[in-house]
Each structure stands twice: as C-alpha cells, then as structure tokens.
Design a protein around this nucleic acid. Structure first.
Length: 480
DNA sequence: TCTTATT
C-alpha cells in the first residue's frame, strides 16, 4: 500500500499500534487480545462513503493508520438504509490524528463527488458554537479569499464556500474557528461592515444554524412542498403579524415539542421524509389519506405505523394553534401558553379535522397508481360553496399566489379556521380551465377577515407566499 | 444566504 500524504506532510511508514505513552493497546490474556482504547481516544466521523461499502470494505482503508477499536457504518434506524457515513474509533489516539491528516478531504472514494471526510465526531467536543455562516459574499470569492478575510481573528479549522452542482458559488460560506471567542470577534468586526463586489447587501457574519435550526428549516421547507399548513409555516410564513418575542416564545415551544417522545407533526414530517417519494405523485401532490376517518387506507409504500397519520396529526394538532373566529387572533394564540402538540388522539368529530377536507381534496388528485384509494372514498365530505356571495364591506378578501392546484374548496378550507366563510372562489382561465392563482374569500364579519389576513398574509406554500388583503370595493377603478 | 451525512 502506498504511503498516504496529506497537505504535503509525509507520513511515517509502518504505523505503530502503541499509544503516545508507548503502551500496547490490548489486554493480552493467553492467546487472546481484548481490544482496549486510549482513555483519550478520538471518535472520528467519516463522511462521503459510497453507500455500497460496509464495515468490512472500509476496514482495510483505515487499518492503515492503526488498530481499529470500533467502526460503525451509520444506518437509518427504520429503513436500515446506509447513510453514507460512519463512526470510527482507533485504539490509539495517535492513529485517529494520522488518519485525519492523511485522509480528510484528501481522496475521493469511487462514485462520490466530494472527498472523504475524516474528523472528530460531533460528540467529541463543542461543535457549532464556533462555526460561522458567512452570507452576501461575492460569487467569485474563493475559499482563499474568505480565509484571508477571517484569518486575523483566529485559527481557522474549516472554510468552505457553498457551491451549486455546477461549482458556482452560492455566495455564502462556513468558517469554523478553533474557539467561540474567535468566531465572536469575527462577527463583531465583519458583520455588516462591507459590501462585496456583486453582492446585494453588506456582508453577513453570524453563527451557523444549529442542527435544530437546520431541522426546523427543512421541515418548514417540506411542509411548504407538501402544501401542509403547519404551525411552522404559520410561524415563519406569517411572521409579519407577530412580534419578535412572540416568535421566540413560539419557537421555544416548538423546540421543546420536537424533542418530545410522542409523535408530533414535525417528527411526523421527519419520518415522512424517507417516504416522501413514495407519497408523492408526479405532480408533487400528497397521496396520503388526510383524515383518520379514512385511516384504514394506506397507500402503497406508506406504513401507517412509521408515519402515523401525518396529515391528521397536523390537522388536529397543528391547526389547533390557529385562531378560531375571533378578532384577537394573535393575542389569543400567544397569551394562552399554547400547546402546539398535545399528545392526544384525533377525534373524528374535531372540526379542525374537517378543516383539512379541502386540503385532502387537493391531495386527492391522485395519479392512476393511486386511483383505487381515491375511489375508495368517493364521498369525502367536501364543502362546496353554493354560489358567489359577497360579505359586507371589510369581510371580503383578495388572495393572490395560490398554488396552481388550489380550487374553490381548498381555498375555503384554508380560511375556514378564521370564521364563517360564505364564499370562496378561485379564478379560472376560461380558455384553459387553469387557475389564475388568485381568488376571493368572503366572511360574514370583518374580524374574521382581519384574523385571516393576520395569519395568512405571507403564508408560505411551496416557493410562494400568499398575499391576503381586503378586496377593494367594487367602485375602485384599478383593475388587478 | 445554512453543506453531505453525526449513532
């Protein structure tokens, strides 16, 4: 086997399996040696491993640097799927250091686009509190440019410019310092201080998202893709309506809930992540039954136990944070110490579950593959507005940026939680029968309309944010 | 403008 070099540093040949104190690793009893590891051994995280490589395949590569105490390929707890990474502990601390310097980012395993990662696992020490996110970089700034910008503040352990598949910079980077204080110093000096060529505003330097924040963001994204109206979406999508303090309070509640052991909507979404391809048809529509009353049906590939009534959970628990029909919407929600995810079973008669009928209808546009499911429940109660009616002045809303797939029923369902919807109409192109992605909703009282604006204006669905405002009176002369 | 994963 060839000598591996890293960063131009020649590795010594013939690695010893003794630790830094010269002690042999392993307790010899007769013929057998029970593996022992240094008390200060380092658990390494190995990334960018091809998913077809198992422990036995990886062992030779890493044994090069010393005796392996433990090597575990990470698998998904439910599906057993190879996660493309592993944990590795050498008996000797020194072996870990050697392996890291020889392999980290130094070679690319077959089939991978990025070089192998070999570094101390997150569990080995403080992780994110010294890692910075740098935004608003110029698109042409390289790792080296970023490094130069930050090197005066301390020891940089990692510096990565984020790039798209084509290698083009995304205009942001991660910079990891060896200490929190160094990172903080960089923030203090650099954040907002200068505008890079080609950037649209001044440099952003802040601590990178924690795992939790990242998870939240992804779930939020997913909820958006699913067209699900989760409290996350409300929280982040309609934040114009809320104060910062309220946001933080809400976020804390969500964090706590997310850590709970019972299945909550966010966990359900996470669980659904692995199944999402199975749950989507080509149009990106959800193919999962949306109410527990239809819970006897499970689409192919969806396990009712591993993804326990995803939408139902969200429908009941998620929407319960929404205001009912009253004009004190936000105050009501936030002063009562909401319980976003009560560990309760959904009840069939819950009106909030009904509120999802429209979304269900939206989701029920199954492809041929799921036709049997939709046919199994042809009588799903769907509220269909009898005729277009306008409410009194101040009760009529104009809604723009609706999903293309939304029809009258979905529009109505979306606004039912805020009061009595007397009419909901999506405008349709007469020639193509396609939605024009805007519509009108009328309530029977102005405070419902206001509550709906408060909660739903800016509500994110997929890539779009709803625009919800009072409809102009008829006599106004500007057409839309 | 938050990566490719962290039991």
């Amino acid at each position: 086997m060839a000598t591996v070099t890293a960063n131009g540093v020649q590795q010594e040949n013939g690695f010893s399996t003794t630790n830094s104190a010269g002690r042999m690793n392993g307790l010899s009893i007769g013929q057998n040696t029970i593996p022992m590891k240094d008390h200060d051994a380092i658990k390494l995280f190995i990334g960018q491993i091809p998913r077809n490589l198992e422990e036995k395949d990886l062992k030779p590569l890493f044994e090069e640097f010393g005796k392996i105490y433990e090597l575990t390929v990470l698998k998904d707890r439910f599906t057993g799927m190879h996660k493309g990474c592993a944990f590795l502990t050498y008996c000797a601390r020194e072996s870990a250091l050697k392996a890291q310097s020889a392999l980290h980012e130094q070679k690319t395993l077959p089939g991978m686009n990025r070089p192998i990662q070999v570094k101390p696992a997150d569990s080995e020490g403080r992780g994110e509190d010294r890692k910075l996110f740098v935004g608003m970089l110029g698109k042409q700034q390289s790792e080296e440019d970023v490094r130069r910008l930050f090197e005066t503040f301390g020891q940089i352990e990692e510096c990565t410019v984020l790039r798209g598949p084509d290698g083009a910079s995304k205009g942001c980077a991660f910079v990891k310092f060896s200490s929190h204080a160094e990172a903080q110093a960089a923030i203090n000096s650099l954040h907002g201080g200068q505008t890079m060529p080609g950037a649209s505003s001044s440099l952003v330097v802040k601590f990178a998202d924690t795992d939790k924040e990242r998870t939240l963001r992804r779930m939020h994204q997913m909820a958006g893709q699913l067209g699900i109206f989760s409290p996350m979406t409300i929280q982040f999508g309609a934040y114009g309506a809320y104060s910062h303090a309220q946001m933080m309070q809400q976020q804390a509640a969500l964090m706590a809930a997310t850590q709970g052991s019972y299945m909550n909507p966010m966990a359900a979404i996470a669980a659904a992540q692995m199944q999402q391809m199975a749950a989507f048809n080509v149009n990106g529509l959800v193919a999962t039954p949306m109410t527990s009353s239809s819970g006897t049906s499970t689409p192919p590939g969806i396990s009712a136990t591993s993804v326990p009534s995803l939408a139902t959970t969200i429908g009941v628990n998620g929407f319960s944070t929404l205001p009912q029909s009253n004009g004190q919407a936000t105050e009501h929600v936030y002063t009562n110490g909401i319980h976003p995810y009560p560990a309760q079973s959904p009840t069939v008669n819950d009106p909030l579950q009904q509120a999802y009928a429209g979304v269900q209808h939206y989701a029920a546009a199954y492809p041929a593959a799921y036709a049997p499911i939709s046919q199994a429940f042809p009588q799903q109660p769907t509220i269909i507005p009898q005729q277009q009616r306008e409410g009194p002045e101040g009760c009529n809303l104009f809604i723009y940026h609706l999903p293309q797939e939304f029809g009258d029923a979905e529009l109505m369902q979306m606004f039912l939680p805020f009061g009595n919807v007397i009419s909901a109409k999506v405008f349709v192109d007469r020639a193509t029968n396609q939605s024009k992605c805007f519509g009108f909703v009328s309530f029977d009282n102005p405070s419902s309309a206001q509550a709906a604006i408060q909660a739903m204006n800016g509500f994110q669905i997929g890539m779009k944010r709803l625009k919800v405002q009072l409809k102009r009176p008829k006599d106004a002369n500007r057409p839309y």
